[in-house]
């Protein structure tokens, strides 16, 4: 089971929910939390444990041998302006390269062999029964998608279906979000009950519908703002899975890098509610 935790708007509480939910579930089940918000990976700040593995993640980019007839076909082939012929040189812009390999493999003189370029680091941490994996995009690299994609490959190669896998996704509605949630079985959209929260939630819902995903909403900072988010979910028949109240204690714990679920009973109640609605609970409800 793969669950992605996403949101249109940033700062709505994705990381708070992802770290708390996975820590809570890991008390009874095998859980892997994966931070796919590779531009600003924050989950690690809340996970205490020992690093068990670390590796560089690379993408394949062309490198010019300096020895060719300068036919310019590579420049014409590249749809991303990553290969440009300037005078008697082939200039490469690896941060724009999508690693499609076309320029390299179609070069009639094999003058653009592919070389690995480091785009980030992947780290694995063992925190009690919880396994945590994060990837961090190198500063200056512009594309999050190849790093997200390879991080998911790492997860698929190391953890079978007996694990509950929780993705902490990047904010927004563009390509990194799609990449992070496209193979999830269920997506939790975290929002807050404000006009910004609602507007960005609508965009996120549009993305999920386009991707034909099962999804539900968690309202964070419930009590702030107004009822428009709840009314919208009601009208669109989107399940509201949990409502986390607007509680200064949560913000303070979060600020200090503390996990919230074990400290605040009301928060734990909402997690249990969420667990039941996701049918992740191993405990049978007393009838």
């Amino acid at each position: 089971m793969k669950i992605a935790i996403a949101s249109g708007k940033g700062g709505t509480g994705k990381t708070t929910l992802a770290t708390s939910l996975s820590s809570h579930l890991s008390e009874t089940q095998d859980v892997v939390l994966v931070d796919l918000d590779v531009e600003e990976p924050n989950s690690r700040l809340f996970i205490r444990g020992d690093q068990t593995h670390s590796q560089s993640i690379c993408k394949q980019v062309p490198e010019w041998t300096g020895d060719c007839s300068l036919c310019g076909q590579c420049q014409e082939i590249c749809n991303f302006n990553a290969v440009i012929k300037v005078g008697t040189q082939i200039m490469l812009f690896p941060e724009l390269c999508h690693s499609c390999r076309a320029c390299s493999e179609l070069c009639p003189e094999s003058a653009l062999p592919l070389k690995p370029r480091k785009i980030g680091m992947l780290n694995q941490i063992q925190a009690g029964n919880l396994i945590f994996v994060e990837s961090r995009l190198e500063i200056g690299e512009q594309q999050a998608v190849p790093l997200i994609s390879q991080t998911k490959d790492y997860i698929d190669n190391h953890f079978d279906e007996s694990y509950i896998i929780i993705y902490d996704s990047p904010p927004g509605t563009s390509c990194p979000v799609i990449e992070a949630s496209k193979d999830a079985d269920f997506v939790i959209l975290v929002t807050e009950p404000t006009p910004f929260g609602l507007y960005d939630l609508k965009l996120a819902v549009e993305v999920m519908r386009k991707m034909k995903k099962d999804f539900g909403v968690v309202v964070n900072r419930d009590g702030l703002g107004n009822n428009d988010v709840l009314d919208y979910c009601d009208m669109e028949t989107i399940p509201v899975l949990a409502r986390i109240s607007n509680d200064r204690r949560i913000a303070e714990l979060y600020a200090a890098g503390e996990l919230i679920f074990s400290t605040i009973p009301e928060f734990k109640e909402q997690l249990l509610l969420l667990e039941r609605s996701l049918e992740l609970s191993t405990v049978v409800d007393p009838v």
């Binding site: 940033g10 700062g11 990381t15 531009e39 600003e40 924050n42 700040l45 809340f46 995009l137 500063i139 690299e141 512009q142 594309q143 999050a144 990047p170 904010p171 927004g172 990194p176 979060y254 600020a255 200090a256 890098g257």
Partner: peptide, 27 residues
């Protein structure tokens, strides 16, 4: 925009001054 990716790089190119808005939290 948030993050450090292509949109932010593009917003910064040619800028004279950057105003960060942040909060005193670990994140």
């Amino acid at each position: 925009s948030p993050g450090i990716g292509c949109a932010v790089n593009s917003a910064l190119s040619g800028a004279d001054y950057v105003v960060f808005v942040t909060e005193p939290s670990v994140s």
